[in-house]
């Protein structure tokens, strides 16, 4: 049976300001969901709350992974379960090579599964990493660069996808992976994601625009507005949004004034 991420009537915020106001959503391993919404609707907050960023407070509701609440788990413990977030703004870690970072992360995952694990051997890791990089059409020299340090916007996003390819999460949240990228970069990154999408991975693609969905076709589309999912449907919903924008929701639910 595949993994299931369930978000149940989730209320959360930051510094006492409510942002998520009752989110309900279920993502199963093997499914592709798109979560769309205007700026400030709470999309990024949802991804941070899912992965356990310490700044956000959950007021009520629950997040279940395979039926168990993960609210009390640290971000690393959530990662060990198979939850992954591709960051909108990946953070640079100067002096730490992509290869070293990936190996440390992979070993942390192996150790979480089996405390007696001695870690992946360097030759085995090299093979795995180079295989994943080839799969994503990345230049091997990338492995020797310092993580996100001086990376272009496109390189940062590809580094996120590489991490995803190495860690092989069960459920991946992609937070505005397309933002700040030109159309060629979106295509390259999306092709990488497509290669990973399949029965082994469920994806929640968070995006403002429809364009990335041309490359990563979703089975389910959800519209988030003012901290709630206000409409769900199939791929046709994304096309409708492309035509009409978010104005109909603004009319229906009022203008959102909170900052993102």
């Amino acid at each position: 049976m595949g993994a299931v991420l369930e978000i149940c009537d989730l209320h959360a915020g930051v510094n006492g300001t409510p942002i998520l106001k009752g989110v309900n959503l279920t993502v199963r391993q093997g499914e592709v969901h798109a979560l769309m919404g205007p700026n400030g609707s709470g999309k990024s907050t949802l991804s941070f709350v899912l992965t356990g960023h310490p700044v956000y407070e959950v007021a009520s509701g629950d997040i279940l992974f395979n039926g168990e609440s993960i609210l009390d788990l640290e971000p690393d413990e959530r990662s060990h379960l198979g939850l992954f977030m591709a960051f909108q703004y990946p953070v640079s870690i100067p002096g730490v090579t992509v290869a070293n970072f990936l190996r440390t992360a992979l070993n942390a995952h192996r150790k979480a599964k089996d405390p007696s694990d001695k870690g992946v051997s360097i030759p085995e890791f090299r093979r795995l990493m180079l295989d994943r990089m080839k799969f994503l059409q990345m230049d091997p020299s990338f492995a020797g660069r310092y993580l996100n340090d001086g990376f272009s916007g496109g390189e940062k996003k590809r580094a996120e996808i590489l991490q995803m390819a190495v860690l092989q999460p069960k459920i991946a949240v992609m937070d505005e992976t397309d933002s700040g990228l030109d159309i060629d970069a979106v295509r390259i990154v999306a092709e990488g994601v497509n290669k990973l999408v399949g029965p082994e991975m469920g994806v929640l693609v968070i995006t403002h625009y429809q364009r990335i969905l041309n490359y990563i076709p979703p089975q389910f589309v959800h519209v988030m507005y003012d901290g709630r999912i206000v409409e769900s449907g199939g791929p046709e919903l994304a096309l409708k949004l492309e035509d009409e924008g978010y104005a109909p929701y603004e009319e229906k639910y009022g203008k959102v004034v909170t900052a993102p």
Partner: peptide, 21 residues
Amino acid sequence: FYLQSRGLSEDEANLMIVNGF
């Protein structure tokens, strides 16, 4: 948070940042 979200404990994340430094 970034490093922890990849599965590193807080101690491991701190160590990695220091080693990089």
